[in-house]
Amino acid sequence: MNNETTPVSLETPHFSINQGKDHATATPMVELRSVSKRFGDLAVVKSVDLSVRKSEVVCLIGPSGSGKSTLLRCMAFLEAYDEGEVLIEGELLGYRDDAKGQRHRISDRETARMRRNIGMVFQQFHLWPHMTALGNVMEALVLVRRQTREEARVVAARTLDKVGLAAKADSYPAQLSGGQQQRVAIARSLAMDPHIMLFDEPTSSLDPELVGEVLAVMKDLAAEGMTMIVVTHEMGFAAQVGDTVAFLDHGEIIARGSPTDIFRDQKHPRIRQFLQNYLDRNAFWS
């Protein structure tokens, strides 16, 4: 097992590579105000508040089914939240409230414009299998950013190099390992110059051996000051890279704070149980 997957002891002293970053910007990059989302009768996200500063790395942790992924998807309007507000750099996402307080869905075109500053990485990568790694990264540069193919090729090659895959530019996704595919997916988002990166369990479908290479890229990104919201089961990553860790259970954030606050001397029984399970699962021997 490599560093990234080493189990976090509840007693491990906190170390953050993001200490000392400039957090002075006034408008939060992402702000959630009482956001709720239901699927039929099931309340999946219940009145969640969250504020993410520029360059902050927020890790959302919690048991499966706790609403982490749905909450993240609301921040990109892949799920239309039912109540509350999602503000991206101060602007309401997905809806427009008129003078009478009535809420209207904005057009797909408007939503697409607001999403321009959001990048998202998925658990299953979702690369386009009929295009090479380079083609995957170039596609939106050409179609959305209106770059010429030559310009896009340069930007895409540079971005692939940044995630350590310059040599794999001409490979198709099926010819790449899971870790490499996920790095291509990260490059595809990064090439569009997003202000905010959302990660939805980016390492959950990877072989344990390949988790490290993806986390390493994410760590670099955090060190460069990218604003990141990461749904993850990698407690090591959350502890090392996260500025804030939020614990979700049954659609609510039941605890939030620095990794130290969350992981060390946790008093909340539900969170203690969750962390204990994590440690048991990752223990080599006892």
Partner: peptide, 14 residues
């Protein structure tokens, strides 16, 4: 897979 379409729409493809 719908995920491929979501990935595209996040990137701003129409």
């Amino acid at each position: 897979p719908s995920g491929q379409i979501e990935a595209a729409s996040i990137l701003g493809l129409t």
